[in-house]
Design a protein around this nucleic acid. Sequence first.
DNA 1: TTCCGACAGTGGGGTCGCAAT
DNA 2: ATTGCGACCCCACTATCGGAA
Length: 512
Amino acid sequence: MLLTRLAQVSRQVAATSARSRKTALLAELFRDAEADDVPIVIPYLAGRLPQGRLGVGWKVLSRPVPPAADSTLTVQEVDALLSELGKVSGPGSQAERARLVGELMGAATEEEQRFLLGLLTGEVRQGALDAVAVEGLAQATGADPAAVRRAVMLAGSLQTVAQALLAEGPGALERFRLTVGRPVLPMLAHSASSVAEAVEKLGACAVEEKLDGIRVQVHRDGDTVRVHTRTLDDITGRLPEVTAAARELRGERFILDGEVISFDAAGRPRSFQDTAGRVGSRTDVAKAAGEVPVSPVFFDALSVDGTDLLDLPFAERHARLARLVPEPMRVRRTVVSGPGDLAAAERFLAETLDRGHEGVVVKALDAPYSAGRRGASWLKVKPVHTLDLVVLAAEWGHGRRTGKLSNLHLGARDPDGGFAMLGKTFKGMTDAMLAWQTERLQELAVEDDGWVVRVRPELVVEIAYDGLQRSSRYPAGVTLRFARVVRYREDKRPEEADTVEALLAAHPEVRP
DNA sequence: TTCCGACAGTGGGGTCGCAAT
DNA sequence: ATTGCGACCCCACTATCGGAA
């Protein structure tokens, strides 16, 4: 199949807002794909490369290459070249990657270049990713969409399911069952603003501590243990403690879901930055493990001794987990019967925060494990802090925010009477707020370099955030975690904004 | 007819590893 | 030795579509 066909469909998909139309366009393309093209066409139209990321970013891609006049590239040729690109390493590799990218782009028409650019940066922006591709695949093969979705979650891969489905038809879906050793997409949580709201929604539920570490899925089959992240990357080699812990358990075959986190000598959780740095270390794992040891803490069991537990209610899955995993290796929890039992849930949250954790996850006791979904039956509750900060500058937005001032630079008052930048945010704004702030900030503008618009520090904005973290980038030595706009405070003057000093005093556990 | 679940988009900060300087 | 880039951890929030209620 020619690349131009994919580029055209991608453009058409982007041009329509109706999901049903997007699905139909993808289905038509998938039907036409030859068997050899399927493993390439499917991921491409889901906005991903089958090879994963290739070490090519904006630096290389921003160099313009004159487009070809005619469409001659086949998807096979593109795939072969990108596979080659992925193998390049060592001295001179940046130049070699740039050369290969230049070769590819030079053979592509303007429309094809745009499509390839989206694929290589992971930003196709066609309003359709995996979920719409799955729907299109079901339509193309006449399979039940829910069955296809489930197979994709269990296989952890759209491409594998697509190949089987297009080659063999809907019967092939049977093959994709939960298998020890093959990672499945993990279940995710929604947010709730309070424990009361969460318990009200869920009724009988477990309230579990939420650890601020790295999500892991641990598979053990006899002596073989594999550890995967939320995106199913294999990180077994970086976490010898987890492998050892899994081997100690009194079960030969299982899949467990949990979090990896580092505790200090006093048993308090280390900061997310410390845990993440440890888990990210690959070159000298033994040294990293000596300095920042990590522990697995589990909260769910997907499979035990060959039995698939996914469709069992959480209460039963947890009972199996408790039989397999001793207490210190399980998340602390309390079970409440419903809104009448709210006090117990609130008390548990307070204790969890006292122990230094992030918050809690409230889970319905009767819910199955919804692999790959952001199920409404898990609700996380974290305390939210707010500050009144001053807008120092704003950046012009992209995509649907083109022409709008979007990303705000936020400052707190510093001791010299000026403002210290604490970070940026683009979150929390409605379209109306975007329009309003674009107008208002341009009135305050003192400089516009086409990217950042600096403004007189006069506009006060209320910002919600999850906590402070160390920063080497910002002048106060700290930055806000997950900052988002709550509302503008036109009733406040910049002299009334919060100070760096007060912020640091509110978070004694973080020292710049 | 209205409501709500699921998705995609719009980007944030830190840290590590690697190659270039 | 330092710097810059890319990958990958963590993530919040809004708009929109289309099926459920």
